[in-house]
Write a protein that binds this DNA or RNA. Sequence first.
DNA 1: CCTCCATATGTAGGTGATCTATATACTATA
DNA 2: TATAGTATATAGATCACCTACATATGGAGG
Lengths: 114, 114
Amino acid sequence: MAIDKSLLTGSATMLILKLLDETNMYGYQMIEELRKKSNNTFELKAGTLYPLLHTLEQKNMLTSYEETADNARVRKYYSITKFGRKHLKEKKEEWKAYTAAVNGVLGGASFATA
Amino acid sequence: MAIDKSLLTGSATMLILKLLDETNMYGYQMIEELRKKSNNTFELKAGTLYPLLHTLEQKNMLTSYEETADNARVRKYYSITKFGRKHLKEKKEEWKAYTAAVNGVLGGASFATA
DNA sequence: CCTCCATATGTAGGTGATCTATATACTATA
DNA sequence: TATAGTATATAGATCACCTACATATGGAGG
């Protein structure tokens, strides 16, 4: 990962919820999607994702179901819940406020668009 | 702090270096400046700042000197080094790339300006 | 056929940034 | 003279994410 991993903290949950807000997905697919949508910036690790999915399911932000693919391989799909969407919305607002604050320190409003 | 603290990870160093890139400061002053410049979004804790300043000095990104204020109180001022400025530049580029990637996932280029 | 790589999910243990809690000490104000 | 604000500092806890490891299936090439 080109980006210092320590900058990532806290974003993984938001990004996963965002993916699932568009369509149901299985874990491995989320890793691929995040990589594509971020132009190879994000390389979310399997060891990070799966425990996180379990936690989010326990917190009732996601539900899961198994589905057999064409090749008879079983995949575990995740679906976002109403509570998950609410949480996503909050996280997005936090993200906006946070980036605005950082950019404010980094050199005023001009920084973000420079 | 309105913002989930977990979103902060990794930014403290960059923000401190940025403050010192403008003018020399002492620790307590940095906390105040960050709070002001971020419209009360950042409340950097003393217990976070001081160990971080010591670490950055050990890494030769900062140097320090003591100065006595009008009221005879001794303050420890920090000054950014050439190496510190180089590091700041790198961190700023990482920050830009990271926010671009997150915004890319969150809904395309339109998100940041929405 | 068999080996290797990609797909797919999972757990255990470690790292690192930040926090809370605590300590010290001086200054200003009520 | 007590309380709040200024100013610096350390110890221990928390939490997100990582690496390393484990397991199993499917497809491709030798």
